[in-house]
C-alpha cells in the first residue's frame, strides 16, 4: 500500500497530495516534486515512441533507499504519483497499475463534477476515500 499519493496539475503544482501521517509530510512533498523530473523525462520520451503513446503508466520513476516512486500521466498531462515503502515488497507492478487506474477513475469523477473548477485543489470526499483505501493505514 502506498505511503503517499499525489495528483499534480499539468502546470506541475499539486492538486492533491496525501501521505501517511506517521512519516514526515514534507519529505514526501520533496520526493514527489523531485519525481516530476523523471515524469517529464518520460513524457517527452513517450512522445517519441509512438507505440507507447497510449500507455499512461510510467512505471517506477526512481527508487530511493526507503521508497519507490511510481508515476502515471493522464492524457491531459495530469500526473499521478504513488510512493510505496521499499520494504513493502508484496506490491507488484500490476497492483501499482490497478491503483493508478482506480485513482484515474476517481479523478475523472472529480473532474466531471460541475461544481469542481478545474485547476483547483481537489477536496472531494469520494476521492479522499478512494485514496484512503490505497494508503497504508495509520497505526
Amino acid at each position: 500500500m502506498a505511503v503517499c499519493i499525489a495528483v499534480i496539475a499539468k502546470e506541475n503544482y499539486p492538486l492533491y497530495i496525501r501521505s501517511v501521517p506517521t512519516q514526515g509530510e514534507l519529505k514526501f512533498h520533496y520526493t514527489v516534486h523531485t519525481s516530476l523530473d523523471v515524469v517529464e523525462e518520460k513524457i517527452s520520451g513517450v512522445g517519441k515512441a509512438l507505440a507507447d503513446q497510449r500507455e499512461l503508466y510510467l512505471g517506477l520513476l526512481y527508487p530511493t533507499e526507503d521508497y519507490k516512486v511510481y508515476g502515471y500521466v493522464t492524457n491531459s498531462k495530469v500526473k499521478f504519483v504513488i510512493v510505496v515503502d521499499s520494504s513493502n515488497t508484496s506490491l507488484r507492478d500490476n497492483e501499482i497499475r490497478s491503483m493508478f487506474r482506480k485513482l484515474h477513475n476517481s479523478f475523472t469523477d472529480v473532474m466531471c463534477n460541475p461544481f469542481y473548477n478545474p485547476g483547483d485543489p481537489i477536496q472531494s470526499k469520494a476521492f479522499d476515500s478512494i485514496v484512503s483505501t490505497m494508503m497504508v493505514q495509520a497505526f
Partner: peptide, 13 residues
C-alpha cells in the same frame, strides 16, 4: 522552483 510550481510545504520549509 517550488514557488514557480506552487508547492507550499517545500516553500515554507
Amino acid at each position: 522552483s517550488y514557488v514557480s510550481e506552487s508547492w507550499s510545504l517545500p516553500i515554507t520549509h
